[in-house]
Amino acid sequence: MSSELLLNIYATWLHLPRKESGVLVILTLIILSSVLTAIGIFDFLVQKFKSALIIPITGFAHSMTSAALEYKNEGLVLGIGANIFKLAGTVILYGVVAVYIFGLIRLLIIGG
């Protein structure tokens, strides 16, 4: 609901079409959740709101930021680089696989 509100605000204030203002909404949510993770607030919010924050893009951004924070002491390459996708990697992999499968189904049934 808050995303919908944000979408309308962007659409009216910046005079953007709905599709482009949607991109801005996603960017805002990603930045906001990453900052909240970094200052140590997001994990308390997760305890309270649970899946409402974990399932959307906020959860994805949070999983990457929290992993990066966790491994920052082990260096840029072997620490952050190797571990930032520790939780998010599985979402990316199966997200891409699912897109291929459903894209193929759509192509075969509806024809593109």
């Binding site: 993770t37 997760v46 924070l69 939780l87």
Partner: peptide, 9 residues
């Protein structure tokens, strides 16, 4: 478990 800041329920 998970990264400490993740705070999974």
């Amino acid at each position: 478990r998970n990264p400490t800041e993740y705070g999974a329920p």
